[in-house]
């Protein structure tokens, strides 16, 4: 059922690289917002998992980034832009289990090569643009049928 809202609700959160203490805060804020708007639980779950993985990637790999969200009656669009190292081989990065994460990140329970596949799994539209040495932008849409 489409959301009963007028137009588009949008907002953004700033993400700071390396800050594991607050990692995930933006995604949980978005989750709360979706809950308040009365979005169905299964859709909230997909949107928050996809957003959380994207947020963690910024925390792990980039210096900083932004998470923008746009909520319309028919869907949730999330765009995450980072100032990170970029991805050299996207096809490889999309493979489950492939990761370039350093050991200390793995010891924190991240960097197992599931992030991008998990974002794709949980979104209806998944787009990634990356420039090595500059950064990565991920755009995801989760439909509200």
């Amino acid at each position: 059922m489409p959301l009963n809202i007028d137009g588009c609700i949008e907002g953004s959160y700033q993400l700071i690289g390396g800050n594991f203490a607050t990692a995930g805060e933006a995604s949980t804020c978005l989750k709360l917002k979706l809950t308040e708007l009365g979005v169905a639980e299964t859709i909230i779950r997909r949107a928050s998992i996809a957003t959380f993985e994207a947020e963690m990637n910024v925390i792990i790999y980039a210096a900083a980034g932004w998470l923008h969200y746009y909520i319309t009656p028919h869907g949730i669009k999330i765009r995450i832009e980072d100032m990170g190292p970029g991805i050299e081989d996207i096809e490889l990065a999309m493979q489950e289990g492939f990761s370039t994460a350093p050991e200390w990140v793995r010891e924190l329970g991240w960097g197992a090569g599931m992030g991008l596949p998990n974002m794709k799994k949980n979104s209806d539209l998944f787009k990634i643009d990356t420039v090595v040495g500059e950064g990565t932008t991920v755009e995801m849409v989760i439909n509200i049928p």
Partner: peptide, 25 residues
Amino acid sequence: SDLLSDVMANAKDGNVWITLQTHLN
């Protein structure tokens, strides 16, 4: 365990190790 340092610290000779990690290490 999925944490290499944990396995280094706690796994014992004769154990079989169950994990999701597939890293070369």
